[in-house]
Design a protein around this nucleic acid. Structure first.
Ligand SMILES: [Mg+2]
Length: 318
DNA sequence: AGGAAACCTTATCC
DNA sequence: AGGATAAGGTTTC
């Protein structure tokens, strides 16, 4: 299943974006190579190694490899300065999607404007400075759902490993000019696996959650597309009905899979940093913190969350 | 209704 | 070095 986040169906690509083709890929054995230039801030390393996405791998010193809407993509940053960025992109010539990368990186969203909104908040100002070019990605809702069910009380390296093994075991084997790769497995394929299969992949207690939710989605394929049209509160309530999905994971799915920037997922890192800098170190219940985040950061709550998350983790590792 | 306790496994900390 | 603690929480009791 592959759903398009609603905001992208009507997204306009701004004039500031240029696509420069370097190789037309007339020969079906050659990859298509082109550049993307944008005035929007985008730091590939920060964005693709962040905690919102789990399947990107830096295989070369420079090249990132990943899969977008079932298409394998290789990217490297060839320019990054204050006013413009440039990406070199390699795709299989079989890829027909237009604006695949522009949509994935949400290049229609004005992050300079968002940074301005962060100016009045001392912590966000610092975070935006340190992680400039971190962008929210427009990812697949189904992939987000399973990925974040796997994230609960886990850690990022482990989540990546769980997902990688699951894709290798259950994802469709596909071929392009670069060779073999595996897609993210469908709900029906996962529903026909067993809980023990998932335990042997290292899912632990999340194995039953993944199986139950896969079965539910396989039996009700319209479930996720209905979410897209619901108001935030109702969308979240619906998602929470799924096994393994509570408030936090519902917020992650809404933010990363449905472009709902009003979501403010509260995990242990957000809890720590928000208590420390916004509540004078006092302990605050997670539910209150989520309400605070949505209230405090408004339309950009989800972007603020992402910057605070990376900032909090950065503090720990320094 | 609200708050512990249980739940798997692997990084990371000290 | 290796035992303790924490990790993008949810469910169950
Ligand atoms: Mg649930």
């Amino acid at each position: 299943m592959s759903l398009t986040p609603s905001a992208n169906s009507s997204s306009e690509i701004p004039d500031s974006l240029k696509v420069i083709k370097l190789s037309s890929g007339h020969d079906a054995r050659d990859p298509v190579i082109f550049n993307i230039e944008s005035e929007e801030p985008l730091n590939l390393d920060i964005t693709l190694s962040s905690g919102q996405t789990f399947r990107w791998e830096k295989e070369d010193p420079d090249w990132w490899g990943g899969i977008i809407k079932g298409n394998r993509v290789f990217l490297r940053q060839v320019e990054i300065n204050k006013s413009a960025i440039r990406l070199e992109c390699k795709l299989s010539p079989s890829v027909k999607q237009t604006n695949l990368l522009e949509n994935y990186f949400n290049l229609n969203k004005n992050y300079t404007e968002i940074y301005s909104a962060f100016e009045g908040d001392p912590i966000l100002k610092l975070a935006a400075l340190k992680y400039r070019g971190l962008r929210l990605l427009a990812q697949d809702p189904w992939e987000m759902l399973i990925s974040f069910i796997l994230s609960s009380a886990s850690n990022i390296p482990r989540i990546r490993g769980n997902i990688k093994r699951m894709c290798e075991e259950f994802g469709d084997k596909k071929f392009d000019v670069f060779g073999e790769f595996h897609s993210f497995p469908s709900s029906s394929v996962l529903a026909s696996a067993s809980i023990d299969d998932f335990k042997s992949l290292g899912f632990g207690f999340r194995a039953s959650y993944v199986w139950e939710t896969s079965l539910k989605i396989a039996e009700d394929p319209g479930f996720l597309s209905k979410i897209a049209s619901l108001p935030y509160i109702e969308a979240k309530d619906e998602l929470c009905k799924l096994s393994g999905v509570g408030e936090k994971i519902a917020d992650c799915v809404l933010l990363f899979g449905f472009d709902r920037l009003e979501s403010f997922p509260v995990d242990t890192w957000i809890k720590k940093i928000v208590e420390r800098y916004y509540f004078d170190g006092r302990a605050i219940p997670v539910k209150k913190l989520a309400e605070f985040g949505r209230e405090q950061f408004g339309d950009y709550a989800g972007v603020a969350q992402q910057y605070l998350f990376e900032y909090a983790r950065g503090l720990e590792s320094e």
